[in-house]
Design a protein around this nucleic acid. Structure first.
Lengths: 112, 112
DNA sequence: ACTAAACATGCGCATATACTCATATACTTG
DNA sequence: CAAGTATATGAGTATATGCGCATGTTTAGT
């Protein structure tokens, strides 16, 4: 992003939208659960403890942002992470936050 | 983030907040301008074309999130990027978006 | 002490969006 | 075709937040 030409407003809004998609705890929870692999909606509802309607909406948001991929199989719909950069994104943010929080309490599990 | 222990809700909210800070075009604009180095508020107002009040608020948000560092010098206040992970974050998102948009129009400049 | 400059902040408005409830749609099975 | 299951969506509400306007606060100069 250290480019000579500044990003136009259109591009900035796209980047902002991208970050906004990741700015909700429930969506992060879904992403985290999907790190283990593809899951159908019902499994995600149970894993997250959310309501079916709400989970469905979040899945729609994540899919429209091309973060998740949607695969329909009979009655069920399976979702999976489709953008590999999500892994690094989350690692970066977690690492940065851990550094910041080292001075304070340990909200994060153990290490790394 | 592919850890065995799932992140607790507290941590997820922290991560979400982190992303939310980066989910505003004007804040991204500020960050982009600051990639070139430390600047005072007036310079940032002129560079972004925003109002002084609004820029000041965004700077406060970014500083509270430890994305920027604040340095007071006489009448002026200088801001600079304090979290180096911001660079990689923006690169990752931009790269991912460019890939997605390759099929469509070229909103981005030339492409690194 | 007064004035001016640089920055921050209280307040109100408008908009966005996450959530819940109820209902609709799509598909399978009998 | 009827009924049931899995998922999606429309409507309404509550909360959050970005913006503009006006004003407050801090510091420098005379």
């Amino acid at each position: 992003m250290a480019r000579k030409t500044p990003l136009p407003d259109d591009a900035l809004e796209l980047v902002a939208r991208r970050f906004a998609v990741l700015a909700e705890p429930m969506r992060l929870r879904l992403i985290q659960v999907l790190f283990a692999g593809e899951k159908n909606v019902n499994a995600l509802v149970e894993a997250t403890g959310g309501t079916q309607a709400n989970i469905s909406r979040h899945l729609q948001t994540l899919t429209q942002a091309n973060v998740l991929a949607r695969r329909k199989e009979g009655l069920q719909v399976f979702y999976a992470i489709s953008d590999p950069s999500i892994f690094k994104l989350c690692e970066l943010v977690c690492g940065s936050l851990e550094k910041q929080l080292t001075k304070q309490a340990g909200v994060f599990g153990g290490g790394r």
